[in-house]
Design a protein around this nucleic acid. Sequence first.
DNA 1: TTAATGACCTATC
DNA 2: CGATAGGCCATTA
Length: 103
Amino acid sequence: MNSYEKIYDVVTRIPRGCVATYGQVAALAGNVHWARVVGYALHVNPKPGVIPCHRVVMKDGSLSTAFAFGGENVQRALLEGEGVPFLPDGKVDVAGCRWKIDF
DNA sequence: TTAATGACCTATC
DNA sequence: CGATAGGCCATTA
């Protein structure tokens, strides 16, 4: 589906050391209402290893607690490994690491 | 085609 | 601030 392709493309374009929210990815994909669809697309994750799902977080910076690809701690470790700072709340420092579109 | 599901977001109490 | 309800869209059965 083209919708998924767009979502995957956007997620793959997320630079290392940055995080994007579902809503933002959805907005970049073309529709802000695709927030749920983005989650669904990542849930299918037909291209593991190619799609950095760990860079996609909630609007608040929290990680996906419902269906982490292997555990929230793993996602946190991956992000930390890429240079993404974490807050004591266990959330990503979205305030300083939010993906900024570079046109 | 209809109904149900989902890794969301916003508003309200 | 925590919990609940509703809305949004695409995919699947």
